[in-house]
Simulated scan of single mutants.
Amino acid sequence: MDVCSEQHLICLDLGTTYSRVWLLCGDEVVARSIRPVGVRLVATEGSTRRIVTAVRDLVADVRSQAGDTHQPKCIAAAGMITSELGLKEIPHVVAPAGLKEIVSGSQWHHLDEISDLPFLMVPGVRTTLNNSPEDVMRGEETLCLGLISSGALTIPGVVMNLGSHWKAIKVDSSGRISKSVTSLSGELIDAARTQTVLASSLPKEFLCKLTWKWVEAGMTECRQAGLPRALFRIRLLEIGKEGTAEERLAFLAGAFIAADLDALVARGFLEDKQVVLSGRPGIADCWRRALQEISVQAYVLSTNDTERVFLIGLQQIVNGVQSRKEAQEAQMSIG
């Protein structure tokens, strides 16, 4: 069994659209590197070639930045790297799942085409209904562990990750992930903005701040006419020369927020009344205001805090795996 020292550790998060790598010395980030490459490419191209190249280059980059002083012994990897679209599929653990279950489901593997270091692969979490998958996650479980450990999430509570996918995660009073709900809203916003007739109505780049009045207008339109009609309304706004491209983007975001928020409320998902939001800043802040209007307390993590708690979560898993190994060795010596 491989051994990984917490003192020097490479951490990897392979997502749908981005891949991130850090080299840690204890709690300090010595080096970091990021590339706009994720498993969406595998879904569209049918090959992991570009993922392998990107991860190999990212690992080499942080090792080069850190220099000979910092010699990591392993790579702790979470996210979509362990999915069927990733580089080594690892089975999900079944909810309810906390640190103990995630540690038990983690596996050591070697990916020689990427690095000479061993990989500690972190499993995702699956919620089931009548023995069929109800929802899945990969990466967010690590974020949840870090939020709990750092005290940023009061349990029971809800974590909402607003990236390529919008995922709401319920964490129970024991600190275990009990269920989750995922939508494609993040990807659909980008697709509507770049791959449909709405492209001329909207700005080319996403904004860090969205005008709340226009977000509200999009939410209202979605609730009155449905999401598809609300999206076409953006085209009509452009034809009628109503609003700027940036304001119409806020309208678009509002339509998707209303669709997902109303579905979560209908499921009784927000009864815990405490939500931590992470993800794209402009979207996360609009979600905070939308939740506030239905009397749900919400807190937005900064980009830096999201990184910090994710790395805390990965370190917890590494420590848990090491402690489990030591306990097994101690038991064997007794026997």
Rank of each mutant, 00 (worst) to 15 (best):
V3N: 02
I10L: 09
C11Q: 04
D13C: 13
G15H: 07
T16S: 15
T17K: 04
W22S: 07
L23G: 13
L24A: 02
G26H: 06
D27Y: 07
A31C: 14
L41Q: 12
A43S: 06
A43T: 01
G46F: 10
T48W: 00
R50M: 13
R56M: 05
L58D: 03
V59C: 02
D61T: 10
V62A: 07
S64K: 09
P72V: 13
K73H: 14
K73E: 06
M80F: 04
E89Q: 13
H92W: 00
A97M: 00
V103I: 06
W108H: 11
H109F: 10
D116N: 09
D116H: 11
L117M: 15
F119K: 09
G124S: 00
V125E: 05
L129M: 09
R138A: 00
E140K: 08
E141Y: 07
A152T: 09
V159M: 13
M160V: 08
M160L: 13
N161Y: 15
G163H: 08
I169W: 05
R176W: 12
K179T: 13
K179C: 13
S180N: 07
S183W: 00
E187C: 00
D190K: 08
L198E: 12
L202R: 14
L202I: 08
P203D: 03
P203I: 09
K204N: 11
K204P: 04
F206M: 04
C208K: 14
C208R: 15
C208V: 15
T211S: 06
T211W: 00
A217V: 09
G218Y: 03
C222D: 01
R223Q: 15
R229H: 14
A230V: 08
A230W: 03
L231K: 03
F232G: 04
R235W: 04
L249A: 04
A250F: 09
A255S: 07
A259I: 01
L261M: 03
R267F: 15
V276Y: 04
G279E: 07
G282C: 12
G282H: 11
R289P: 14
L291N: 08
Q297P: 09
A298I: 10
Y299E: 09
S302L: 01
T303C: 01
V309K: 05
Q316E: 06
Q316Y: 00
G320S: 09
A327T: 11
E329V: 15
